[in-house]
């Protein structure tokens, strides 16, 4: 990793106020509105309470917004000719990818850290494993979504590509059972969408595998572990295959 490159990339991130708003401020706001401010936030869920459930969901949303944006801008920069400029330096492609990956993880830590701290002071309760596993799954899983951003950057090659990628994330977050609990047919559909397995796994230590399904009279339903894991594996494979196809398509157009 190249520390100067890393530091300048972070500087670029904090200079982009719009990006900071969508990645860091908005998910915090969502947590406060949908979590801390609700009267049911102190109701218990598995090893903790509802506030913590909403905290993990919104931190996951912030983290994927961060990695999608970093992944998308990395692809776009290379497409717009910065890759040629780097081609005139000793920097290897693997070094570029490694540096961007560390930048992505660091930027993803911003919403996770902010929301976790705010939540800790506004009533989120849970046992230590729920906090730690939740945080780690959010961080590692978010890396997969940098590939999602990469695909948009490779295919659209303009600033609007990143906006488009972030916009689709909002839809996927609703469909992925992330913003509020889905039930019935919608919940069944949700299990096939890309954010479902990710956020479900992040909340799993807290919920002990139980999910709320409204059609079951508000009863909790146990979900086998293989469901969120299979969802993540399948979508990771799909994203990687699409990214490889997008790279080849991009090369043909050059």
């Amino acid at each position: 990793m190249n520390p100067t490159y890393f530091a300048l990339e972070l500087k670029r991130f904090f200079r982009d106020y719009t990006g900071v708003f969508f990645i860091a401020v908005l998910p915090c706001f969502f947590y406060v509105v949908f979590g801390a401010a609700q009267f049911w936030s102190s109701q218990s869920v598995g090893r903790g309470n509802v506030a913590m459930y909403v905290m993990i969901s919104m931190a996951a949303y912030g983290a994927v917004t961060a990695t999608v944006s970093i992944g998308g801008s990395a692809a776009m920069e290379r497409m717009q000719g910065w890759g040629r400029q780097l081609g005139l330096t000793p920097m290897r492609d693997s070094m570029f990818v490694a540096t961007k990956a560390v930048v992505g993880v660091t930027v993803a830590l911003v919403p996770i850290g902010l929301i976790f701290v705010i939540a800790a002071f506004t009533g989120a309760r849970g046992d230590l494993p729920a906090w730690i596993v939740g945080g780690l799954v959010i961080l590692v899983g978010a890396a997969v979504f940098s590939v999602y951003g990469l695909i948009f950057g490779l295919l659209f090659r303009s600033e609007s590509a990143i906006g488009a990628a972030s916009g689709t994330l909002v839809v996927l977050a609703f469909l992925g059972n992330l913003f509020f609990p889905l039930s019935g047919t919608l919940l069944t559909i949700a299990k096939f969408t890309p954010l479902y397995g990710y956020v479900s796994l992040a909340r799993r230590t807290l919920t002990e595998g139980y999910i709320l399904n409204g059609t079951q009279n508000g009863n909790l339903v146990f979900e086998p572990l293989w469901q969120p894991i299979l969802n993540i594996v399948v979508w990771t494979v799909i994203f990687c295959a699409l990214a490889v196809a997008a790279v080849r398509y991009g090369r043909r157009r050059q």
Binding site: G81, W82, R84
Partner: peptide, 30 residues
């Protein structure tokens, strides 16, 4: 090895960096 370098045709700059930051960024790769 830094034996050859080039000024390429248009494109290929990061618009949100300053002039000196851009130079520093590329310098860090050598």
């Amino acid at each position: 090895a830094g034996k050859v370098s080039a000024v390429l045709q248009s494109g290929g700059l990061l618009a949100d960096l300053t002039v000196v930051e851009t130079v520093r960024l590329i310098a860090s790769t050598f």
